[in-house]
Structures are given as C-alpha cells and as structure tokens.
C-alpha cells in the first residue's frame, strides 16, 4: 500500500508542504521536476545558460526561504514563475548597471502599418535550408533578446509555458488587461524586428 502511494507523483503543493515539515527529499523532487522547463524559461529570458544556472539556484533558494508564506490554496507553478521572473529581472538590472553598453541591437520601429497578414506575406520561411543554420537561430535569439524584459517574459510564459492570460496575470501580478496589451505590443514588436532581421525571406515571398 505504501509502495502504491509512492508510485503516484505527488503534487507540487504537497511536496512543498513536506519540505516545510522536514522531508529532505521533497525539495530535490521539486527542483528535479521543474529543472528543464524553468531553466529553459530563464535561459530564454536572460540569454545565457550560465546566468540561467545562477538565477535558477536563486529562485529555489527563495522558494525555500518563503515557503511559509505560500498559500496552500494557490497553485505552486505560477508562484514559482513569479519568483523566477522577479529574480531574472533583478539579475538583468544588476547586469545592465555593470556593463557600459547594451549588447542588444537597437532597432527602429517606424514601419508598423498594416496587419500581421500584410507583414507576413512572407511569413518565416521554415522550409529553407538556411533557416536551420546556427547563424539564423542566433539571429532569432538576438531578436528575442532585444525585446524589453516585460515583453519578453510575457511571450515566454504564453508560448513556452502555455499559460492562459489569467495565469500570466497571477504569475506577474499585473491586471489581466495589462497582460493582454503587453502581449499584443510584444508580438507587434517581435514581428517588426523579425522582419528586419530576415528581410530576404520577406522579399522572396512577397515578390
């Protein structure tokens, strides 16, 4: 019976409660469970795997320190991502203060007329061999990295974490309307910069 109980994965909230009760393996299970997804989120947010390692550790340290304030009626995952996003923003702020110049490339945004369909007459060409190259994937990364923090985090949470608007609002602790308007602005900016980064694919398709 005990064996059967162990084979069923315990919910995150139960693991956190066990950790607070002194179960040493509970935190390890929580970390292991969220390792891949959270690390990828942080990597995409921060643009660096090593920075993601650092902020990942900071995040779970904060989970440990703030476990007593966690409301059991809430879901653990949005709470975890709230902490992670805050830590990532702090990391960004400190890093910006330390470096003299931004590594992101400023991109103009004065040609934003038309709908996405107009802009996407040549939508990203996923079939060409060039699109598979490392260089191109790095350019996509540069476009993502060039988005402001509050836009990038919302794109990552909606697309990679498949969070609904209400979950994103809970995670980022901002009103639902703000989440929507930020994502709309983020997608418009991303599309605009993407088009500038890959002008050839658009020219080819629109001709």
């Amino acid at each position: 019976m005990d064996h059967q109980r162990k084979s069923v994965p315990r919910p995150d909230e139960a693991l956190l409660a066990s950790h607070m009760a002194g179960d040493e393996s509970a935190m390890a299970q929580l970390i292991e469970r969220h390792k891949i997804d959270l690390h990828r989120f942080l990597q995409r947010f921060l643009g660096s795997a090593t920075a993601a390692d650092d902020v990942f550790q900071e995040t779970f340290l904060q989970v440990h320190l703030s476990a007593s304030t966690f409301e059991q009626s809430r879901a653990f995952k949005p709470w975890l991502y709230t902490i992670a996003a805050n830590k990532a923003r702090d990391f960004h702020r400190k890093r910006r203060r330390r470096t003299m110049t931004s590594l992101s490339t400023p991109v103009g945004g004065d040609q934003s007329d038309g709908t996405l369909i107009d802009m996407l007459q040549g939508s990203p060409d996923t079939t060409s061999a060039a699109s598979e190259s490392i260089e191109e994937s790095l350019r996509v990364k540069d476009v993502v990295d060039s988005l402001p923090d509050h836009h990038r985090e919302i794109v990552l949470l909606s697309y990679f974490q498949r969070m609904s608007y209400s979950q994103i609002a809970e995670t980022l602790q901002v009103p639902l309307g703000t989440v929507k308007s930020r994502l709309h602005a983020a997608v418009a900016t991303f599309a605009d910069r993407y088009r500038r980064a890959f002008p050839h694919s658009f020219k080819a398709n629109s001709s």
């Binding site: 990828r40 995409r44 340290l61 191109e136 599309a191």
Partner: peptide, 27 residues
C-alpha cells in the same frame, strides 16, 4: 497561421540543457 509561424520561430533559439549538477548545486 501567421501568428503561429512567428511563435514557432522561437523554437529555433539555441537552448543548452541544464548542467548535471544543477540540482545538487541548488540544494
């Protein structure tokens, strides 16, 4: 479809796997 194409382009950003010792280091 156009929106999905943009979002799917994000899948191409290079991602490294977390290090093997990340869990131990965090603990």
């Amino acid at each position: 479809r156009a929106l999905c194409d943009y979002f799917h382009s994000l899948d191409r950003t290079p991602i490294a796997e977390p290090s093997d010792v990340l869990v131990e280091a965090t603990l």
